[in-house]
């Protein structure tokens, strides 16, 4: 082993410098040219940072488009999902309660019209998106509370729907923070 020890030691030193020193600094340097300058892209309102573009935030009020259930209450100090298995009876009870709560707050909605993402926790606990259906299903509730035409809100959701990548790949999404900011713009609560 002795024959290999010193080459191994020196090569380790070189590889540490290369992969943990040079490489991250190079990427940090490149990222200075990227949106957010490598610090994460922020969203500002009236000059104040009110969120990170990629990180979801919680909306609990009935007069906002609400985000998905989260195991970490949308605090990105950490991240994580519920890790509940599909057959766990306690978990299934939680889902049932979420459905009932949703129906109470959205009396115009049929049970079968509730998209799955609104009653299941996301993986990161920070999901910034809903499907277009997940936003549309909340329109009638918000329209009543804010006194806006439902049609106007549906158009708003449509404007904020991001189609699949290049029109071809993956699902369509709605960014909830941007949608709610736009909502506040047409109607201050």
């Amino acid at each position: 082993m002795k024959r290999y020890f010193f080459p191994a030691l020196k090569l380790t030193l070189v590889l540490v410098l290369l992969t943990a020193g040079f490489y991250p600094l190079l990427i940090a340097g490149l990222a200075k040219m990227a949106p957010g300058r490598g610090d994460g892209v922020t969203v500002k309102k009236d000059g104040r940072i009110i969120g990170y573009a990629n990180v979801g935030q919680q909306f609990t009020g009935d007069d906002y488009f609400q985000t998905r259930p989260s195991a970490v209450a949308y605090n990105a100090a950490g991240s994580g999902g519920s890790n509940k298995g599909p057959s766990n009876p306690d978990y299934l009870q939680v889902v049932k309660d979420r459905i009932d709560t949703f129906l109470v707050h959205n009396p115009d909605v049929q049970r079968s019209g509730i998209p799955a993402e609104l009653v299941t926790a996301s993986g990161s606990g920070l999901d910034p998106h809903l499907s277009p259906e997940g936003a549309l299903v909340q329109v009638s509730r918000i329209a009543k509370l804010r006194g806006i035409q439902e049609q106007r809100l549906r158009e708003l959701v449509k404007e904020h729907t991001q189609g699949p990548l290049a029109g071809m790949f993956g699902p369509a999404t709605v960014h909830v923070l941007q949608l709610n900011l736009a909502l506040d713009e047409i109607h201050q609560r």
Binding site: R68, G81, S82, N83, K84, P86, Y91, A116, E117, T120, A121, S122, G123, S124, D127, P128, H129, L130, S131, G134, G170, P171, T173
Partner: peptide
């Protein structure tokens, strides 16, 4: 679209 627990919309 399928099971959503633990998954992300995007």
């Amino acid at each position: 679209s399928g099971a959503m627990e633990g998954k992300e919309v995007r």
